[in-house]
Design a binder for these strands. Structure first.
Lengths: 346, 346
DNA sequence: TTGACAAATCGAAACGTTTCGATTATAATA
DNA sequence: TATTATAATCGAAACGTTTCGATTTGTCAA
């Protein structure tokens, strides 16, 4: 076939092979109803004509687009990039195309989800949503019979969820610092979800009877810039400084590290520092980051599997109740934390 | 509409409104052929029934899926992630969904491209391909009448390309180092595309009459791990060391930086280091990286625009010859390079 | 040879739209 | 009021498949 020639259809094959359209369809789908010799003949004609099945037509009649939608807010975080990457990969291995949308605000998110509905996707993966209630997503879920899983976790939402036990993650790093002898610990926490993760932080302090200093608990997004900016702010205002600092992810920890370096402070000598996510950058920065492994590969697999289950259930017109899943975090100790050796004054 | 109810179609609206199917179609598409009052009535019925247009059906008849395919090998590189992110964003603003595939090897790549063809996409973006000849892509381009742009550049390929003048990029950083007085410069270069980029390196040396040391020209992929591993190797083998080192991207420069740190060498005092890409991690590591800005935003816009042009041309059955585009790189000097102060011996 | 039964093939409807030519309703003109 | 011209609406075909019930072909036993 040359450029600008019209595509061959099942009809062309039928004409050429002197058989009916339905026979061609069966033959191409390897149905046992068609005689092997005829099947081979038809398939060879198809090959000869450079035939490519027309998924739109097929989808229209079967009601199956063999495509899922991934609607994710990566916000520059390599952890979410990895998860997306992996999901796309697994989906492809399972024969699904992945329509991807990356949202930055709620409005674009809504538009994208509506587009997803129009395209009769087999299912939707959306996230991350940590805590709170997202009406956009829940409306889509309730108003359309479409399989969906949500990345994140929120007790207020009825959509099947795959999340990470962030509370536990924060607990782990905090506990680690406390066990190293630190007693003055700061925390850079997410604005929206402060409550739950902050809970992990406080739990840990409480369990080991360490005092909580609200003035060292700063809100900031999980980006390099925010980690840098907020740490700089802390360095300007606080003296003496906390001897250890918990960042809510590796990315902002790297930013904070930069701010500390600029101020001439050594990590971990002058201040221990921890992240969460176990991104590659945290392994190769100096000092390498103590962090929490959130097993992105496992995560992605679980996400896809839950969606697949739902797709199958829905196809069978069965109702199902999928349990929410929480990925268990795992502490990884590296160079950015060390035993307490006193606090630094500016 | 409740879960598991069948979706409303244009037919339902027609019945309910006591009009014909075609009138409904026109009304929903805001055609001037239908009387305003009737239009509003129909649209309100549509809203009431929670009607969502069926893109598969629409695509089947119009031959337009309003979807493009993005087939990209990001290989962990944040620069390519940014470009993808941006492309997806722009495409959405232009009303296109984006079917995404992330390839790691040529086989999965081929499979994904074939899926793209089946889905009757409006166009395909594929890359990156630097140098050499990729038969998979060119076959798809030649055998199917589908608009396509390629990310990268290769003189052997006939597909419209958007690339970066990497030769120039490498030239710029090398020149910068030479102007700082460095005369013994190493280079971590891409394996496949060594020829062209290496050309930029050699050009620069030649122009300023600086000697080329092939033993310091190491091949390695553009990942953190490779940067780290290869720099470690260099540190083990060479003494005295080069006083400056050019990495073919920021990511492997960060890896190399880590290796230098581990060996107790200070950047830039003991060795100047440069990257390419201007990723965020290079801004926030210590020392921050001297690099080359490849203007990913601009890049993404150009990619989409070229594809769009092609889509429009193809729709009009016009032939067109799009010129290849090369993004002009721009040197960014930061902390990782400093004037020559002698070489380090192990 | 005929009849019966299974296997292979076929025809037609259906999926949900768009679109174009035909038809009908409306308004303007004679 | 009759005639036209124009605007609004409609009917039907088409897009490329799948699928199911109907029909034909083939095989074997009587």
């Amino acid at each position: 076939m040359k450029r600008f020639e019209k595509k061959a259809t099942i009809k062309d094959i039928a004409r050429m092979g002197g058989v009916s359209i339905s026979t061609v369809s069966c033959a191409l789908n390897d149905s046992p109803k068609v005689r092997p010799e005829k099947r081979d003949l038809i398939q060879s004609i198809a090959r000869q004509l450079n035939y490519v099945p027309h998924d739109l037509a097929r989808g229209l009649v079967t009601g199956n687009s063999r495509t899922i939608g991934l609607n994710i807010g990566i916000g520059d975080n390599p952890y979410l990039v990895k998860i997306s990457d992996k999901i796309i990969h697994i989906a492809r291995e399972n024969g699904y195309g992945v329509l991807t949308s990356i949202w930055q605000d709620d409005e674009s998110r809504k538009k994208d989800l509506n587009m997803f509905i129009q395209k009769s996707l087999n299912g939707i993966i959306s996230g991350p949503i940590f805590g709170g209630y997202d009406s956009t997503l829940e409306n889509i879920y309730n108003n359309h019979s479409i399989p969906m899983v949500m990345i994140g976790n929120s007790e207020y939402m009825k959509i099947p969820q795959i999340g990470v036990d962030f509370r536990k993650a924060i607990f782990l790093v905090t506990e680690h610092l406390i066990k190293l002898g630190h007693k003055e610990i700061g925390y850079l926490c997410m604005p929206q979800t402060a409550a739950d993760w902050l809970g992990g932080f406080k739990d840990s302090l409480l369990e080991y009877s360490v005092k909580y200093f609200p003035e060292w608990c700063i809100e900031g997004l999980g980006t390099l810039k925010e980690g840098y900016d907020k740490m700089k702010l802390l360095l300007k205002s606080a003296s003496p400084l906390p001897s250890a600092f918990v960042c809510h992810n590796d990315l902002c920890a790297c930013g904070a590290l930069r701010a500390l370096n600029e101020a001439g402070l050594k990590v971990p000598l002058d201040m221990s520092l921890t992240g969460v996510d176990n991104i590659e950058a945290g392994m190769y920065c100096t000092p390498s980051l103590t962090t929490v492994n959130l097993k992105e590969e496992d995560f992605a697999i679980q996400v896809f599997n839950q969606l697949k289950k739902q797709i199958e259930f829905t196809a069978d017109h069965k109702m199902m109740n999928l349990p929410n899943i929480l990925i268990e975090p795992e502490l990884i100790v590296r160079e950015s934390t060390s035993p307490y050796k006193g606090r630094k004054t500016k």
